[in-house]
């Protein structure tokens, strides 16, 4: 685990150095001085974002299905989960999980501790849970907006419940939810900056560390540009995939 970590850290460091060799000369001095740190931080931010979106989505699908279920045994807990995690600030959740749970002996002796002791993992876990609640709500919106007639048609054709979900409801729910999901991913990109408060060295963590040395406001400016660029690229990616998902609706 740690061995892998160190090799990985090393690789990240090497890549950052290489990137900075190339872009260093064309960037402003204030950026070039700390370039490897900015690039490393950007990598970490992307890492966190990708993992959280994946894990969040994996939790969100069953959660959304439970939420729309007619069985109260499923729908009530799902409703509470979604409401609580959407209804409290992410920063509080991060502190509660990171500093709060660390207080308990039971927790520190569990087999999960090697992961949970690491702020990077803890950040990923909390962000994933948080985003899963938002995504579940988005998916729920998608599911309930699938026209009732299609579901009836599916049933009339003899489809079972699960087949109906796999073939008819979920694919369309995803398509309907896609733009809202894109927004959520960008919100996540921005929210990931909060992991710097639990010692994660993401772009924000690096930025704040650099700033604490020099107190130059331009440091924040460079971070803003990097975040903006990432958000811009994500928006673009979501827009082209949206066009792809809706290709059957084109030219009508």
């Amino acid at each position: 685990m740690l061995g892998f970590d160190l090799t990985y850290f090393e690789a990240k460091y090497q890549v950052s150095e290489a990137v900075c060799q190339v872009i260093g000369p064309v960037t402003p001095q204030g950026f070039a001085d700390y370039c490897p740190r900015f690039v490393q931080g950007t990598f970490t931010t992307i890492e966190i974002l990708v993992l959280c979106c994946l894990i969040g989505l994996i939790i969100a699908v069953p959660m959304a299905l439970a939420r729309v279920s007619s069985n109260r045994l499923f729908s009530v807990p799902a409703y509470i989960y979604i409401y609580v995690f959407r209804g409290t600030p992410l920063l509080v959740q991060l502190f509660l999980f990171y500093y709060g749970l660390g207080q308990f002996e039971v927790f520190r002796e569990s087999f999960l501790w090697p992961y949970l002791r690491d702020s990077w993992w803890m950040g990923i876990i909390v962000l994933s849970i948080n985003t899963s609640a938002y995504v579940a709500e988005i998916l729920r919106g998608g599911i309930v907006s699938v026209p009732q007639g299609q579901i009836e048609a599916g049933r009339a054709a003899g489809m079972s419940g699960s087949l109906l979900y796999r073939r008819i409801i979920l694919p369309q729910a995803f398509r309907i939810a896609w733009p809202a999901y894109g927004n959520e991913v960008i919100l996540m990109l921005k929210a990931s900056a909060l992991t710097s408060t639990i010692t994660v060295m993401d772009l924000m963590g690096q930025t704040r560390t650099i700033f604490s040395r020099s107190y130059d406001l331009e440091i924040f400016g460079y971070a803003a540009v990097l975040y903006f660029a990432m958000a811009f690229i994500l928006t673009y990616l979501f827009r082209i995939t949206e066009r792809y998902l809706n290709r059957h609706m084109a030219y009508r």
Partner: peptide, 21 residues
């Protein structure tokens, strides 16, 4: 667009330290 593309956390720090300068 700028507000939407930059973390709220960063905006708060920018305004806090920026307004001073």
């Amino acid at each position: 667009n700028i507000i939407r593309g930059i973390p709220e956390f960063l905006i708060i720090l920018l305004v806090f330290f920026g307004s001073d300068q």
